[in-house]
Amino acid sequence: MDKAERRQQILLNARDVFAKRGYHAAKIDDIVAAAGVARGTFYLYFEDKRAIFEEIVDRTFTRIGMAVLRVETEDPSRSVAAQIKENIRRIVGALIEDPATTKILLSDAVGLDPAFDRKLLSFYEEIGKLLEASLIDGQSMGIVAQGDAHMFAIMTLGALKEIMYHVVMRGLEYPQERIVEEIFSFLSAGYLRIQP
């Protein structure tokens, strides 16, 4: 196994250990046992438990940020509704396909320490700003109702986080496509001004 594969193996096993035990209860010994590597091998790749945890969270932030694409109202090949559903599908898919990391984001990452809380808050603020900018764009195109785009963004993120909390943390069983359709219906009944 090369270094990149070994590093990935440690990351995946650490993610599962954090999801199962929580950040504070997880020990480096748990991670190396799950990964099947020596403790010294762990330290070749990561400075400490905090460093590997932070990388897991950072990778998820990046994956979620890359999931959202700009809606093009002039695209003749795809309707605005189809593009919005695709964005919802990509975000929900990123969260559902990696429930262990989603669990970490929704529970263990919160309250870790003040520095990490600032990082988490900064991530949500950035996602909120991107969503708010998209909503303002949508308002100028007539596909989003006039109103406080900042508040719309906060409500949208809150709804999505709550749904994912129930799916991942509480075992609410909904197929991914049903989640996408319900979120789209909710937004359509709210600030979206498009035909399904």
Rank of each mutant, 00 (worst) to 15 (best):
M1W: 14
R6I: 09
L11C: 05
L11D: 02
D16L: 14
K20D: 07
G22V: 09
A25I: 14
A26T: 05
K27D: 05
D29G: 14
A33M: 14
A35S: 15
F42R: 02
F42H: 01
L44S: 14
Y45P: 01
K49R: 15
K49E: 01
R50Q: 04
A51K: 06
A51D: 10
I52T: 01
F53V: 02
E55L: 05
V57R: 00
T60E: 06
F61N: 02
M66F: 04
R70S: 14
V71S: 02
D75M: 08
Q83R: 12
K85S: 06
N87D: 10
I88V: 03
I91E: 00
L95C: 06
D98I: 04
P99S: 06
I104A: 02
L105M: 14
L106I: 07
S107Y: 08
D113S: 09
P114V: 09
R118F: 13
S122N: 11
E126Q: 13
I127P: 01
I127L: 15
L130V: 03
L131A: 02
E132S: 11
S134E: 08
I143P: 02
A145V: 02
G147W: 11
G147Y: 15
D148Q: 15
H150Y: 14
M151F: 11
I154Q: 11
L157T: 08
E162F: 07
M164C: 13
H166E: 12
V167G: 06
R170G: 06
E173F: 12
P175I: 02
V180L: 04
E181N: 12
S185R: 13
S188N: 13
R193K: 13
I194T: 01
